[in-house]
Design a protein around this nucleic acid. Structure first.
Length: 740
DNA sequence: TCACTGGGGATTTTT
DNA sequence: TCCCCAGTGA
């Protein structure tokens, strides 16, 4: 039984205890994935359970894939029939089969956040509500909360009738839901809600799935919300063989409605539930683990836990305070360089930050040094305009009543269909209680100018043509047809500039994504492809480039591990993020976030903060994170010795001057740490040598401490200035004078 | 209809 | 700082 090998007693117990509800409280790095995979393997091999009767819910699709693979390796057979995936993808699978029972069409569209925003805007406009008081994103998150609590819009309006603001929110919410239904679309929350609704309303379907899922696993249970909780209860309702795995200290999605009480109350909710604690950490050095414990113990209201390791003490944890983002990035990049020489691989490193916006300075630093990296999240491939446009076409072709997508593409590329024309169509759609697409079918019934009518007709012809083609082509061929026939590609080709070329490349990339999808999926239909595109998580979407440095938010790092971790931007206000109406609870979640970040590290951990952080292009003084203080003597502060400016030295002499080795007219420096700034140097520029004194009107006197020839022929010098504030974001730079 | 412009807001975290 | 949006004029 190779799948029990090397497990500790507790892990083994968790594997063998297959019947009834089981809560596995698994501390960070305690080998929970191993337990789950072994357990599934055990069920299949020893208990003769059909993979088809097992459901495993993970946080990302990638985690599901990996788990499937690991089980397959353990058993030396494929386990394709097993249901593994995220809550959302499981729900889509159920809904695709049965959603017609609750009045939707099975080719429904899944709306992402952007679509949701557009839809909310549409609702606000339609209700004539003052836009200034109702920001789309705020309204949307309000609606999200209501949906999480399964509050009915009408009920919400009634109970808050005297509260003008809330009443309006309710009105928007109500219209929002109405429109979703009309457009045959579901947002992320709806995928869960509608599944629960379907199962509650339809006993036969509920029974079908309850019979099927004899064993149910849920990973990251601490991050489930109320609806997910309900769904799990429904699906595991008959056999009640439910294993959930989680760690309350790693709950970081409270803002998304995750409810810690799901995990805390498990024993109450499920009679006869057993609890197994996994407290031995196999991942991190004891220094790192101690640091994590030191931080998390500041949270009140948590179950005391004793996460321990028999790993060695390991390296001390270093903490460095840098001047600004640029020096922070420079520090990290140089450290990586240094460690690479000591035998680490690029893929050993992760840079973790609190907000995506922080990635920029690191990207610049990596690019300027030609160090390969990958960015998880942030600039998302699928969020690019051109990709969304093409997806817009595909969605309309799959689900023509999806007005949001139709409006997106009807005049993209430009076809002379403007706001006025569109409004006519919408009016007609409203009047006839149908969709904009339907209005296109009945153009004759609508009053339009000749030109508008022609434009609309030719748009309609394009769509009709594509609709005919849809069923006779492979996915990839069809997408190519869409790109060509819609005139989208042509338009880009006409533009013929760098930007349009990148767009074309992205579209080509998208086509190869589709190709890939066809290769890896038996049912490579358009609807499945679109669902896949909508539901892939950020981690899933990032290509598996091996051996590069990884950059991502702390949230994104959940469940991952790296030999070397940099936690950057450890500043109050940034990490922890502090907002006006934050509560103690919010701060505790930030602390758990910090805990998650620390426990990603296996061998080495670096923490950095800056003294000056630029926010909205404005430099702001920053103070070190309170978490740094909580770490006390578990971290070792390293002095930043880079009150040096590195300067790129460009030789501006003419060829003849170079030939005759003559010195010349003003020579320029680029400050690498401030690349836009140019610094002029007097005639002696060419003679710079180590130890030279340099004078700068703002920074005072400095010494040349390093001099090197760059690959591009320029020289690079590093100057140590004696004054502190040298890198304080210079707007304009006065000449440098070289002395001696 | 569309291109241009000025102003204001944005940075939490994501399926 | 940068990006998005609404409003304006041709």
């Amino acid at each position: 039984m190779n799948y029990l090998e090397g497990l500790n007693d507790r892990q083994r117990e968790a594997v063998l205890d297959t019947e009834g509800p089981l809560l596995i409280l698994a501390g960070a790095g305690s080998g929970k994935t191993r337990v789950v995979t072994s357990k599934i393997a055990y069920l299949i091999q020893e208990k003769n359970i059909n993979p088809w009767n097992i459901l495993a819910i993970t946080f990302t699709n990638k985690a599901a894939e990996e788990m499937k693979e690991r089980v397959a390796v353990l058993l030396d057979r494929s386990v394709d029939g097993m249901w593994m995936g995220t809550f959302h993808s499981i729900c889509v699978r159920i809904l695709r089969k049965y959603i017609e029972e609750i009045g939707y069409n099975r080719s429904f569209t899944i709306y992402d956040r952007d679509d949701q925003i557009t839809l909310v805007r549409e609702c606000i406009n339609e209700l004539n509500i003052n836009k200034d008081n109702y920001k789309e994103s705020a309204v949307l998150s309000y609606i999200g909360t209501l949906k999480d609590n399964m509050t009915d819009p009408d009920k919400f309006i009634n109970t808050n009738y005297s509260d003008y603001f809330k009443r309006n929110i309710g009105e928007i919410y109500s219209l929002y839901q109405k429109k979703l239904k009309e457009y045959n679309a579901l947002d992320f929350d709806d995928l869960l809600i509608k599944t629960v609704e379907l199962l509650s309303k339809n006993e036969d379907i509920l029974r079908e799935y309850q019979d099927k899922f004899q064993y149910v696993f849920v990973d990251e249970y601490q991050d489930t919300n109320r609806i997910q909780y309900k769904l799990i209860r429904q699906l595991s309702g008959k056999h009640k063989n439910l294993s959930v795995v989680g760690d309350a200290d790693q709950s970081i999605y409270g803002w998304r409605g995750a409810d810690i009480s799901n995990i805390l109350d498990f024993e109450k909710d499920y009679k006869n539930a057993k609890t197994i604690l996994l407290e031995e950490n196999y991942r991190s050095s004891s220094n790192i683990l101690e640091l994590a414990n030191e931080v998390i113990k500041n949270n009140s209201g948590r179950k005391e836990k004793n996460l321990w390791t028999s790993n060695k003490e390991g390296h001390p944890i270093k903490y460095i305070e840098l001047q600004d983002e640029r020096s922070e990035a420079k520090f990290v990049v140089e450290k990586i360089d240094e460690l690479l020489e000591k035998g680490f691989k690029l893929s050993d490193f992760a840079i973790l930050y609190r907000t995506n916006a922080q990635s920029r300075s690191f990207e610049e630093a990596f690019m300027s040094r030609a160090i390969p990296y990958k960015l998880v999240g942030g600039l998302k491939f699928y969020d690019r305009k051109e990709i969304k446009d093409i997806v817009g076409y595909l969605r309309v072709l799959e689900n023509p009543v999806d007005n949001i997508s139709l409006k997106r593409i009807i005049n993209t590329p430009r076809r002379g269909i403007g706001a006025a024309t569109l409004e006519r169509l919408e009016d007609y759609a409203d009047k006839t209680n149908s969709s904009i697409f339907n209005a296109l079918v009945h153009l004759d019934d609508i009053e339009l100018s000749g030109r508008a009518r022609n434009s609309l007709q030719s748009f309609k012809d394009i769509i009709d043509h594509l609709l005919v083609r849809k069923d006779h082509m492979s996915l990839q061929e069809f997408i190519e047809e869409v790109i060509n026939y819609s005139g989208y590609l042509e338009e880009l080709k006409k533009e013929d500039n760098i930007e349009s070329k990148t767009r074309i490349e992205n579209i080509q990339e998208f086509v190869s994504v589709a190709m890939d999808f066809e290769v890896h999926n038996e049912e490579a239909t358009l609807e499945n492809f679109l669902a896949d595109v909508a539901l892939l998580s950020e981690v899933d979407k990032t290509s598996d480039t091996t051996n590069v440095v990884t950059m991502m938010t702390v949230h994104g790092s959940k469940g991952l591990e790296f030999p070397v971790v940099f936690m950057v931007g450890m500043e109050d206000g940034l990490f922890p993020s502090i907002r006006p109406d934050d509560t103690d609870k919010d701060m505790e979640e930030e602390r758990r976030l910090c805990y998650v970040a620390i426990t990603r590290a296996e061998k080495k951990l670096f923490l950095t903060n800056t003294k000056i952080r630029t926010i909205y292009g404005r430099p702001n003084y920053a103070i070190p994170s309170r978490f740094i203080k909580e770490m006390g003597d578990k971290i070792e502060k390293v002095e930043d010795d880079s009150s040096k400016a590195t300067i790129k030295f460009t030789d501006y002499r003419t060829k003849s001057e170079v030939k005759n080795n003559r010195k010349s007219s003003p020579t320029a420096f680029d400050l690498i740490s401030q690349p836009k700034a140019k610094v002029k140097v007097d005639n002696k520029g060419m003679d710079i040598a180590l130890g030279n004194k340099v004078e700068h009107s703002k920074w005072g006197v400095g010494t040349v401490v390093q001099l090197k020839e760059r690959d591009d022929g320029d020289k690079e010098l590093t100057i140590a200035f004696e004054t502190e504030g040298l890198k304080k974001l210079l707007k304009s730079i006065a000449p440098i004078k070289v002395i001696g």
